[in-house]
Amino acid sequence: MGCKMRKIYLLLFVVAVFFTVNQAWAATASLVELFDGTTYENVEFRVDKSYKVISFKIDGKKKNISFTDISRILDNNGEDVTARYLGKYMKTSQAMQSQSDMTVQKKEDWLGETDPIREKYNKPLWSVAFPISANFSIPAGSYYQGFKAGLGFSGEILISINRNLSLRGTVSKSGMQDDLEEIAPGFRIIDDNLKFNVWKYYISLQFSNGPNWSANKKMGLYGFGGIGAVSHKLTGAAIIQDPATDSMFIIIGSGEGDSKLALTSGFGFVGLLSPSFGVEFGSTIDVIIVGTRQGTAGYDPYGNVQTALLLDFHVGLITFL
């Protein structure tokens, strides 16, 4: 059996064991006390966070206890470690006492689908939002050979579909710096006024998990994916000189190229400063279908390049309506 196969099997085995064990680990307690007064002393227990139970053996038989029945767990030093094992399921003693008492049991208080309180929580944070940001664009791959990272800006409009989904429209400019030393190695640069900008227009679907001012959730995460068009614009001119012959050459920007089909995806964070204003930062990756082919009419410096990549980091402000 090959070494590669062994590694694959080992990886599969680790994954299988990970799913099987499912968050269970052993711990020891000097005392586990339940709300009904039952106590278990000096037990080695396992916490199953998936099923919200702890389990241990008594007289050779396995015993499961629900998190909701546990009053407290003391470790071997007598320290209360209930919160460490039960986490958010450790309620206040008083609240749990009322739940464990059959006569004062907590009442059902589920809200209906159209309950105004529920609707308030489920209402999208915004109807329309306008993020504006400054971005730092890094080109990658041979299509952008001769150009370096640069600054740009982007403006977006987010139209809410529901609490988590929005339609995202983007107009973005990535300004990049030319690198004449790479384009014309060995030449002396006399003047450089070349400007290379990438204009991007996208329609995306955005998934947001928060933020929600009314739920006191000030930070939110979002991710999006979409499709659009990208155009490249090279303007201005540069003058270079051959040091061997002192001949001068002028490189003139070719203007705006054809729009290219492009795919975009990204993620970011939004932090609320007020119910209608916040800051955001994130990252985007664009895959531009440039589809150049070697041997087509004219000089083709890129060879057989099908896609170009642009990585953006942005930071900006967002206003909600």
Partner: peptide
Amino acid sequence: GEIVDLLPDDFDEGKKPTAEQI
């Protein structure tokens, strides 16, 4: 009988099961 809410205290009110689901 009753099916009560013992979700963590910070559980989002809008993401709890609805009365219809219960």
